[in-house]
Amino acid sequence: MNPWRLRLLSQLDALGTVRAVAQAAGLSPSSVSQQLAVLEAETRTQLLERTGRRVRLTSAGLILARRARAILDHMDSVEAELRGFGEEPSGLVRLGAFQSAIHTLAVPAVSRLAQRHPHLDVELLELEPHESLLALRSGEADVVITTTDFDELPLGPDLDLVQLATDPVLLVVPHGHPAAGRGPVDLAACADEPWAFDMPQSYMAGLALRLCRQAGFEPRVVCRFSNYLMTLQHVEAGLSITLLPGLAVDRRYRVTTRELAAPVTRTITAATRRGAPPRAAVHAVLDALRHQPSPPLPDRE
């Protein structure tokens, strides 16, 4: 059996559709279908069945897809052992992290790893929390930095979790803004303000909208950015206010942060697949994430 085709089958189990697998793998849907058909021929077993225009895994396909993850993990482990006989962390580790954790947690950890373990390669992937768990389960990531505080993020017994930090959600306003006084802020007082939001369907856009509605108002959104630095620039210019995690507030921007009267704090967590063969490289990445200085808090006036 070809490991690449096994990975496609495992992704189909995790992502649900051939189109989603194609997007993740950078292939056309027809190419994915062709490779899965070849896998069926290699195994001499029907792995897929059509229901209307959709394809789903047969019982045999489900068994192979879920065993495939263990097979691929074991191959990665063997490769790492052959490269370093298991003593020195080596090989490739794919680390997924959401935007605000990349420059505060992931990049410093990867920089230290590059100095300590020259045979270890870390591929850094920007992934929203809900995306990172899918990538972890499908084998597209080996370690992810995610957050575990909200019901829409599907955790389960198949994951091992390591708490890294806590991170408050803050109101961010321009210097001199009326809300820039001292003390926590009631979001209801900001009902008439122009708001900067993350992109629709993103983690922070959903959280900010939920908090505004809990405070009794529908926010007037004047801009949406997928990059927190652009959001901070917009706020700094006096054009909007926003809600951001503390890790996302870059100290180079002249903005003021305020804690919320009803505090919201998220737990930053590293996750790996439970039951995957132990790899020195993965343990080295986890240790680097655990044992690092806490990032500086944003300035408050």
Score class of each variant (00 low, 15 high):
residue 184 P to W: 10
residue 116 R to D: 01
residue 41 A to H: 08
residue 148 T to W: 05
residue 196 A to F: 09
residue 176 G to E: 10
residue 228 Y to S: 13
residue 281 A to S: 15
residue 255 V to S: 11
residue 103 H to V: 03
residue 142 D to P: 04
residue 238 G to V: 09
residue 189 A to F: 03
residue 295 P to Q: 07
residue 28 S to C: 03
residue 2 N to C: 00
residue 72 L to Q: 06
residue 182 R to H: 10
residue 58 T to W: 06
residue 264 V to L: 14
residue 133 L to N: 00
residue 101 A to P: 06
residue 112 R to C: 03
residue 265 T to L: 04
residue 220 R to H: 14
residue 208 A to V: 10
residue 125 L to V: 12
residue 248 A to K: 08
residue 273 R to G: 13
residue 15 L to H: 05
residue 194 P to R: 12
residue 59 S to I: 10
residue 66 R to G: 00
residue 286 L to E: 02
residue 115 Q to W: 02
residue 122 V to Q: 01
residue 81 E to Q: 10
residue 247 L to R: 13
residue 287 D to S: 15
residue 261 A to Y: 08
residue 132 S to Q: 04
residue 213 R to G: 05
residue 137 R to T: 03
residue 247 L to Q: 04
residue 32 V to M: 02
residue 236 E to I: 09
residue 61 G to T: 05
residue 125 L to D: 07
residue 166 T to W: 08
residue 221 V to G: 07
residue 166 T to F: 13
residue 299 D to T: 15
residue 261 A to R: 14
residue 101 A to W: 00
residue 177 H to Y: 05
residue 214 Q to S: 09
residue 207 L to N: 02
residue 157 P to N: 08
residue 273 R to S: 15
residue 229 L to D: 14
residue 163 Q to W: 02
residue 269 T to I: 07
residue 187 L to H: 09
residue 162 V to Q: 15
residue 74 H to L: 14
residue 45 T to V: 12
residue 261 A to W: 03
residue 286 L to P: 05
residue 27 L to Q: 08
residue 80 A to Y: 00
residue 66 R to V: 00
residue 265 T to I: 14
residue 10 S to G: 08
residue 67 R to N: 11
residue 256 T to K: 01
residue 222 V to Y: 10
residue 188 A to N: 13
residue 84 G to H: 01
residue 149 D to P: 11
residue 40 E to N: 11
residue 263 P to H: 10
residue 199 M to G: 08
residue 81 E to W: 12
residue 83 R to P: 00
residue 109 A to G: 08
residue 4 W to N: 06
residue 19 R to M: 06
residue 212 C to Q: 01
residue 88 E to M: 08
residue 261 A to G: 11
residue 236 E to L: 12
residue 291 H to A: 02
residue 83 R to S: 13
residue 76 D to P: 00
residue 221 V to C: 14
residue 168 P to C: 14
residue 153 L to N: 03
residue 209 L to F: 09
residue 28 S to E: 13
residue 140 E to R: 15
residue 187 L to N: 07
residue 132 S to Y: 03
residue 228 Y to W: 11
residue 103 H to Y: 08
residue 89 P to T: 03
residue 88 E to I: 05
residue 240 S to T: 13
residue 201 Q to K: 07
residue 2 N to H: 05
residue 69 R to E: 00
residue 270 A to N: 10
residue 104 T to C: 03
residue 264 V to D: 02
residue 246 G to L: 03
residue 97 A to S: 11
residue 85 F to E: 07
residue 271 A to C: 09
